[in-house]
């Protein structure tokens, strides 16, 4: 049976991981390649690298990082952040990325989703959506969740799926950083209305939150950062608990 996926997310700036990462066994916790290897060994099913570099120089180091990750890590990984053209994607895939994730660039120019899925296949096109619930409406936001758009989450998700997205990474800005659980109601609605995998993001704090997002939120995968980076939740323990709750995972 296809299993639910656990995906640690690493924020990268100028080729280094940002935010504190507190791993005991790592020589250099700022080195994304070391960290990625560690996560692969600990049972992560996939990895996401989000480039938050603001400069061109910083972006160039991303290519070196992707190449090194592809060389040394034996599980799939997605690269996101600042991708806005076919050339950007071509470069990253040639460096060995398995999938790419686009967000603001798809909102600004929705045809990009079609172009990428036609050229590289849906399987490598993840569309990330940041949305915030305001007055009972889920509103899509741009630029790391800072600028509201006129788009509704469910309409936009349906549109990108029709345009050829292979997967949707939905981050609830209401939940992100709260450690109070994922936005399961919205996730379930996405998962039930769309025929592509949905990755839950934003709000992971406890093991139970993962159980809930798979059961109630019907998510296909769950992404988290700090609970993994600070060792608050060990991936292996998490997966054992999920299995105890009759959720299929790779162990």
């Amino acid at each position: 049976m296809l299993t639910k996926r656990i995906i640690p997310c690493l924020d990268i700036k100028n080729g280094r991981t940002v935010k504190g990462v507190n791993f005991i066994d790592l020589r250099d916790a700022g080195d994304p390649v070391e960290l990625a290897k560690q996560y692969a060994n600990l049972g992560a099913d996939e990895l996401v690298f989000l480039d938050i570099s603001a400069t061109l120089e910083g972006r160039k180091t991303m290519h070196d990082m992707v190449l090194k990750v592809a060389e040394q890590v034996n599980i799939p990984f997605t690269v996101g952040g600042g991708i806005s053209s076919i050339e950007d994607v071509d470069d990253l895939l040639k460096c060995g990325a398995d999938k790419i994730s686009i967000n603001s660039s798809a909102i600004k120019r929705p045809d990009l989703v079609n172009e990428l899925s036609n050229k590289f296949g849906s399987q490598c096109v993840v569309v990330a959506i940041d949305a915030k619930q305001i007055n009972n409406q889920w509103i899509v936001h741009l630029a790391g969740g800072t600028i509201p758009t006129a788009l509704n989450l469910f309409d936009w998700a349906r549109e990108v799926a029709q345009r050829g997205a292979g997967e949707i990474l939905f981050t609830s800005m209401n939940n992100d950083g709260t450690k109070a659980g994922f936005a399961n109601e919205a996730l379930a609605k996405l998962s039930e209305t769309l025929n592509i995998p949905i990755i839950a993001s934003g709000g992971a704090g406890t093991v139970q939150h993962f159980v809930d997002t798979f059961k109630e939120g019907k998510a296909d995968a769950a992404l988290a950062a700090s609970v993994f980076h600070f060792g608050e939740i060990e991936i292996l323990d998490l997966k054992r608990e999920l299995r105890k709750n009759n959720i299929e995972v790779r162990l």
Binding site: L2, T3, I75, P76, E167, N195, P197, A221
Partner: peptide, 30 residues
């Protein structure tokens, strides 16, 4: 959901290609 994306098991293994690999081993599929 299409594509199938993620880890699933391989079963009824019949070849030397799967030497030292157990039934129900997990593989990544897309």
């Amino acid at each position: 959901k299409v594509p199938q994306m993620g880890w699933n098991t391989i079963n009824e293994l019949k070849s030397n290609l799967f030497r030292n690999i157990e039934e129900d081993a997990f593989m990544y599929l897309v």
